[in-house]
Structure formats: C-alpha cells, structure tokens
C-alpha cells in the first residue's frame, strides 16, 4: 500500500494536535473496535473557527486526514466548514488508497460532530443544520457482542 508524500508528511508532522480546554464544540467519531477514533476541538468566535485541535487513535491515514481537516477549517466560517467534504480532504492529501477512504469520511464527520456539539451548547437543535452523525457514547466504546 502506497501513501502519498502529503499523507506521510501529515502523519509524521501532524498539524494542530492536542486539546482545547475551553473549546466551544467537541466531537468524537469512530470506535476503538474498528481501530479509528477521532476527536475534534473547535474554538468559535462570531461564526468563525478561530482555533481547532484534534486527537486521533488510528492508522497513518486517520492521523493525516484529521490533520488535513483541521488545516482546511481553521479560520473558516461555520458555513464554510459545513461544506467540507471527505473528497476535499482526500484531494488535499493527493489521494488515499481505496481501503483508506473511510478515514477521510471520519475526518469530515469529526468536524460535523464538533459543530453539532457547538450548536447544542447554544441550545440549537443541530440536526437540521449539520445532519445526523453517529457519535460515540461517552466511554468511546461499543457494546461487546
């Protein structure tokens, strides 16, 4: 399997890693059973994402797509961030191997999950704006079968 130089660069030197303690929105997607968990922290002022940080448990592509997604939404308006697609993340990384496309979907979902959380904290139902997202329960675990 071959990763692009961009993917390797974002894996080896991920941008915006960490947490934002006073974040305005936090979203976590994926699950440990499948081997990928992404967590996004957003700081939002006047509808603009002024800061973003992430934490990811996952493969090279999971880290690289999270890192790229944070770069793409940093400084963007909420409206712009809501338009971020997994395709845009993939293109910015010069493509992903087919088995890794789901990582870019996860990165898109992580941003949307954080925005949903932001709206929820404002007392606004996020679903009409952000759409439905499968988020983790608070332990980040699925039921054992």
């Amino acid at each position: 399997m071959l990763y692009s130089d961009k993917v390797m660069d974002h894996f080896a030197h991920p941008r915006n890693v960490g947490e934002i303690p006073d974040a305005d929105g936090v979203g976590t997607v994926g699950n440990a059973k499948c081997g990928d968990i992404m967590q996004m922290f957003l700081k939002i002022e006047n509808d603009v994402i002024v800061d973003v940080k992430f934490k990811t448990f996952g493969c090279g592509a999971a880290v690289a797509t999270s890192s790229m997604a944070t770069e793409l939404v940093k400084g963007a308006t909420i409206e712009e961030a809501l338009k971020l697609t997994n395709k845009a993340v993939m293109e910015a990384l010069d493509g992903l191997p087919p088995v890794k496309v789901h990582c870019s979907v996860l990165a898109e979902q992580a941003i949307r999950a954080a925005l949903s959380d932001y709206y929820r904290r404002q007392g606004i139902d996020p679903e009409p704006i952000v759409g439905k997202i499968e988020e983790l329960d608070e332990h980040g675990e699925e039921e054992e079968e």
Binding site: M8, F11, F57, C59
Partner: peptide, 10 residues
C-alpha cells in the same frame, strides 16, 4: 494499549 498498529509501524 492505546496505540494503533499501522501508525506504530510507520
């Protein structure tokens, strides 16, 4: 624990 294999290999 808390580390994913492919990320580790890379």
């Amino acid at each position: 624990n808390a580390v994913e294999g492919e990320g580790l290999i890379l």
